[in-house]
């Protein structure tokens, strides 16, 4: 996708129209734009304003709002709960991103060369991507069931005792990470595979002729030339990672003992469990600010390591 700007001269080239034609033209523009502009106004822009407004109030969704200014933000910034929620979210990202990237890259490298049945394997790896998060969470909650799950049964076969997975505060986040990485592996693989196939074979061949071994070719040629795809995966994964919710809500609901209480789960609970809608809105804006800064930093920093050839 390249962002091609509309040629600037089009505006100047617009012929001067008589008033009736101008009205007709304005109507035409309106007819083309209103079907998207009205819903965006009603269901995105107004709620955005509403969310900012709510974040400046104390509100339980029922009794009238009470203005508190920036108190919600001040409270959240100093609160242990917020720190814990962001901590859990970062824990999720720190586990999920390396796992899904390494796994996706491994599979992409394996499938990069022509082989029999490649399309079938590619389709199989991609299958969890089209499956909904709720189904994936349920499948894994069952596989990782501590007492009756097949995974712990298999671990038991080799004489070990499997962990309590999502029922154990120490293992709940790893369980979520595992399920999430499983679902997104195929997505990352497809992106990286497309990136790998865009690398000219001659580069790798030339390095081979120059005596570079497999690791050197991978490290010096493949990885740098793959950096635009890597960048895309990292940016998307971080945005999605900070907003992780569905699988957490289904697998643990933030528990046990709050061990997987990620930020969006916290927003949900504050609103619908504890009736602290003002605080919840403020927290959602804090999360938005964090994602925005993280994304901007990456876009700024990409020149240092992303090679656009």
């Amino acid at each position: 996708m390249t962002l091609t700007e509309a040629p600037p001269q089009t505006a100047a080239k617009q012929p001067v129209r008589p008033p009736r034609k101008r009205l007709r033209y304005a109507l035409t523009v309106a007819v083309f734009l209103l079907p998207s502009a009205v819903p965006l106004l009603l269901f995105t822009l107004i709620p955005m304003a509403g969310s900012l407004w709510t974040s400046l109030h104390e509100w339980n969704l029922i009794t009238p709002m009470k203005w508190v200014g920036l108190d919600n933000y001040a409270y959240l910034l100093g609160s242990e709960e917020t720190r814990a929620a962001f901590g859990h979210t970062l824990y999720f990202i720190a586990g999920y991103l390396p796992l899904v990237y390494a796994g996706g890259l491994g599979l992409a490298m394996l499938l990069n060369r022509a082989m029999k049945g490649r399309d079938i394997f590619r389709a199989i790896y991609f299958l969890p991507v089209v499956t909904s998060w709720v189904v994936v969470a349920l499948l894994w909650k069952w596989l990782l069931n501590p007492a009756s799950g097949i995974v712990n049964w298999a671990i038991g076969l080799v004489g070990l005792q499997g962990p309590g997975w999502w029922t154990d505060p120490d293992w709940a986040m790893p369980s979520i990470i595992l399920a999430s990485a499983w679902k997104d592996l195929g997505f990352v693989m497809i992106i990286l595979l497309a990136g790998l196939q865009a690398i000219p074979k001659e580069y790798i061949e030339a390095a081979r002729v120059d005596g570079a071994n497999a690791w050197q070719r991978f490290r010096r040629i493949t990885l740098p030339l793959l950096s635009p795809s890597t960048f895309f995966v990292v940016v998307i994964s971080l945005i999605n990672g900070f907003q992780v919710f569905d699988q957490v809500h289904v697998m643990t609901g933030g528990g046990p003992a709050g061990a997987t209480q990620v930020v969006v789960e916290q927003v949900y609970n504050l609103t619908f469990k504890y009736g602290r809608a003002g605080e919840a809105s403020a927290l959602s804006w804090l999360l938005f600010a964090v994602v925005l800064v993280v994304t901007l930093v990456q876009v700024r920093g990409q020149r240092r390591w992303v090679n656009y050839g």
Binding site: I46, P47, M48, S284, V291
Partner: peptide, 12 residues
């Protein structure tokens, strides 16, 4: 993101 909009959308 959606989670910013969820509360006011619900109210709306």
């Amino acid at each position: 993101p959606l989670q910013v909009l969820v509360v006011p959308l619900f109210i709306e």
